[in-house]
Each structure stands twice: as structure tokens, then as C-alpha cells.
Design a protein around this nucleic acid. Structure first.
Lengths: 260, 260
DNA sequence: GCGGCCGGAGTTGTATACGATCCGTAGTCC
DNA sequence: GGACTACGGATCGTATACAACTCCGGCCGC
């Protein structure tokens, strides 16, 4: 893999990945760099599900020792992004349709609970609702631009905000790990689902939420996630990503030759 | 802390803690030892919420180097058991009533979803249901013995089995991290709730589940968890655990003096 | 007497070094 | 010719060594 994330070039400059902790006080340590680099590499298709991740390589590419890399891998392992077995190395969690469904099911359960709590807290009106509306508008802007990456990003932001409104930190933390895994799975693949459909669904979600119509919201959430999954063609995604990686590898080796 | 977990003496010999991964193939590495030792220490009250955890100490007590300890701490951090800030060290996550409620809320959401899926899969009858019944009987045996530790253990086993019936690995994994955190919070504190009440609630849960009465089950779950929390007197628990630690420290230093 | 500076002890973050284990490969024996 | 074994490279797991940082207490100047 050729992720190449160095100090001056944060891996999530594209805004897809969010930091694990909300606290801005936390200084960026090397472990964080590794985590971001691997997540970014996975999201951009440089690392594919099932690919082996070698500590030495990562360490060299990020020009650090293996120790922070190991710690980062352990962290990612406990979040389910990679799997490891002693003396045999770490692999990016191979993805199956079943796993995607499982992730989605848990995510829906969380978001339902979040919405329920948010309504109970009266966060479905006023400034709290405004925040969610802004996310929806952002989504619309991205859809208008046909910016698939922006849509994925805005979609995540919308659901993240929904969780945040529950004011349940534990829920948010769990949601983030799930979202991260889904990001790796879905990556930058262009959704095969029509964009205006996505926008409409979010409008419906927002509407149901603002009215506090929980059963309706539950159904809408479930529908929203499920159709999104159904629209994914796994074979196509894998093929696309493999091609993407090959292109990047080619470009990279070319660049290296030019530099030599 | 004085956990003293060495090779011949597995930390979870009391059966409270479960391994992170289901795969038995995974060889036990030093990192696992550290994880178990810390979780056990937290559950037994040797480490209290908010206590600082010093890498060097753990390493010495387990007679290993700091590297595996660091990796274990990172793992526990990403699971929310400890919090860390660079150069300032790691602390056992300080516990508040709010956090307990948040954990419970997420846990209930997960178990509802698990039950829903299990019923959908027809796991609420036949041998699958039998497994859950056995857990309930175990709970009754423990209650009859007035074995508070056994009750806590059997209670966890019941809910774990419920999750397992959903056949959703992601859900189970998330549930385990939550359960682990709750264990640390509640620890070995004697529940102030009457034991036959607990048994009755589980019977009710089992009954609603076997009949596939989901709304009823949802309510019962919520009630079950909530009353369990309400019965907890935080101040008393903290005081008790502090006393417990002092006793253990005293005994330990005495033992050390005797050995010297 | 009091507040700011500073220096050292203690702890964490990182790098390097070494032993342990896995896996592919070649060689040998039947 | 095939299967078993020995071996070597590659990679992981762990230990040790050093650098960076924090915090606390004393000291000095005011």
C-alpha cells in the first residue's frame, strides 16, 4: 500500500473521517496518524478488504517505528476494522454482504433509539432541529452538484447529527465505529441509487422527526438504510476498487521512477 | 494495583469475563493477559473508576515489558473502559450515573433489536429457546443460593444468549463491550434489588420472547434494566469498593512484609 | 509573604534490537 | 514421481534504551 500520509498532509483533508474523540485538546500522536492513514487508505481503495497489512511497510511509509503502528492496529482491531491472528498478521476485515447487513441493522437500532431520546429531550424543534435542517440542505447542495463523495459525506453528517441530538455519548461513540466500518465497505463507490431519492428520504426523515412521529421515523429509517444497501452491487464495487488501486499503484511507481 | 495474574492463574477463573473473540484458535498473547488482568482488577474493585493506571506498574506486576501493556491499554481505550491523554496517562473511566444510564439505554436498544431479529429467525422456539431457558434456570439456582456473584454472572449470560440468538456478530460484539463496561461499573456490588424480583423479570422476558410478543418484550426489557439501575446506590457502591481496595491493599502489604 | 521560575523525579511516547513463529522452497528419501 | 523434512526469508511478539513531556516542590526575586 502507498498511503503516504506525512505531517503536512492530513489524511482526512477530504473531510470524510472524523476524529475518534471530540476533545480538541488531544494532541495528535503518531498512533492517530496511523489510524487516519489506514482508514483513509481503506476508504480510498488503496487497501482492499482482505488485504494484508504489514507493520513494517506502514512504519516505513509514515517514517516511524513499528510501535505506534502496532498500537494503531490493535485499536482498529477492537473496532472491527481489521482482523489479526498472532504471527500471521493483520488483514483489512474482508467484507461480505451479510456483514454489511449486520452493521446496518445495528446502526438502524441505534439511530431509532437516538431519535426516540432526542424527541424525548425536545430536540426536534428549535435550534437543534435547525442543525439537522442545515445538514439536509448540505445534502441537497451536493446532490445538485452530482458530487457523490459530498453526498456520502453529507449523509453521514446527517445521521451523525441525529445521534448527537440524543446527547448520549456512548451511543455516538458506538455509532462512529459502525459508520467507520461502513465507510470502509462502501468507500467512494458511486451509489447506484438515484440522488434525488436520497434527498427525498432525508426530507422524509426530517419531517417525521420534527413532528415526533416515532413509528413513522422508524419505518423511514429502516427503509432508507435498506434501500441504500440493496442498491449496492458488491461485485461491481470490488472490481471498481481493484481497478482504482491498480491505477494508483501504477501512478505511484511511475512517480517513483521519475524521482529516481 | 495488585492484580497478580500469572500464567497458571487465569484472571477470569471466576467466569465473569468472556474473551473478546469467539475464536478459540486465537492463541493467548501477553496483550490478552493484560486486558484480562485490568478488567478483572476493575471488576474486583482493585482499580476504582478514576484511578490512574501506570504502565510500568502493570508491566512489573505481570512481569513483562511495557509494550504489550500499552497495546492493551489502547485496546481498552477504544472500548471506552479507560480514558487517556498523551503524556498524562491512562485512567479507568470515571463513572457517573449519567454514563450508566447511557450505557443501559444503548444496551436496551441492542437487545430489542436482537430479540426482534431472533423472533424473525424463528429462534424463539425449539433448541434455541431451550438454551435461553437453561440460562434462566441457572439464574434461579444462583438466586436460591443467594449467590450474588452467580446472579450477576447468570444475568449477563442470559442477555448474552439473547443477543447470540440474533445471529448478528456485530451486534454481539458491541453488546460485549457495553457489558464489560457495565461490569466495571457495577462490579461485584451486591444488588440491592430483591433476588426473586430479578428471577421473575427474566421469566417474564423469556415468556414474552417465546410467544414472539415484541412490544411486550420491549417494555419488559426496558423495565428490567431501568429498575436494576434504580436499585443501585452509587455512593454506597463507591464507598464499598474503596473499603474493599483498602482491605486488599492492607492484606497485600502485610503479605509482603511477611515475605521480606 | 507571595508569585513566578526552574529543576528534577516520574511517566509516557518512540526507536532500535532480538528472539519466536509461520510459510514457501528446495532437497532427500522411499 | 511423490511426500516428508530441513532450511531460510519474512514477519510478528517482546524487551530494552532513550527522548519528550508533565507535574510538583523548592528557590529566588520582589
Amino acid at each position: 500500500m502507498n498511503t503516504r500520509v506525512r505531517d503536512g498532509e492530513p489524511a482526512d483533508s477530504q473531510g470524510l473521517n472524523v476524529p475518534l474523540t471530540r476533545k480538541p485538546a488531544r494532541r495528535r500522536t503518531l498512533v492517530d496518524q496511523v489510524v487516519d492513514a489506514i482508514v483513509a487508505g481503506a476508504a480510498r481503495g488503496v487497501i482492499l478488504p482482505g488485504d494484508r497489512i504489514v507493520e513494517t511497510e506502514i512504519a516505513q511509509e509514515l517514517s516511524m517505528s513499528r510501535v505506534p503502528v502496532r498500537e494503531a492496529l490493535r485499536l482498529l482491531e477492537s473496532q472491527g476494522l481489521v482482523v489479526s491472528s498472532p504471527y500471521k498478521g493483520v488483514r483489512l476485515n474482508p467484507v461480505t454482504r451479510a456483514r454489511l447487513d449486520q452493521l446496518s441493522e445495528v446502526r438502524v437500532a441505534l439511530e431509532k433509539a437516538a431519535a426516540r431520546r432526542a424527541v424525548m429531550l425536545g430536540r426536534n424543534k428549535g435550534s437543534a432541529l435547525g442543525a439537522l435542517e442545515r445538514k439536509t440542505e448540505e445534502l441537497e447542495r451536493m446532490a445538485a452538484r452530482q458530487d457523490t463523495y459530498g453526498i456520502a459525506s453529507a449523509d453521514a453528517a446527517f445521521h451523525r447529527e441525529l445521534c448527537r441530538l440524543s446527547e448520549n455519548d456512548v451511543l455516538c461513540a458506538v455509532w462512529e465505529t459502525l459508520a467507520r466500518q461502513l465507510t470502509v465497505i462502501v468507500g467512494l463507490s458511486t451509489l447506484s441509487k438515484p440522488m434525488d431519492g436520497i434527498v427525498a428520504e432525508h426530507r422524509a426523515l426530517l419531517s417525521a422527526f420534527s413532528r415526533g412521529r416515532l413509528p413513522e421515523l422508524d419505518r423511514a429509517l429502516e427503509e432508507h438504510i435498506r434501500t441504500q444497501n440493496d442498491a449496492l452491487d458488491f461485485e461491481a464495487i470490488i472490481a471498481e476498487r481493484r481497478a482504482l488501486r491498480d491505477r494508483q499503484q501504477a501512478a505511484d511507481s511511475q512517480q517513483r521512477n521519475g524521482a529516481a
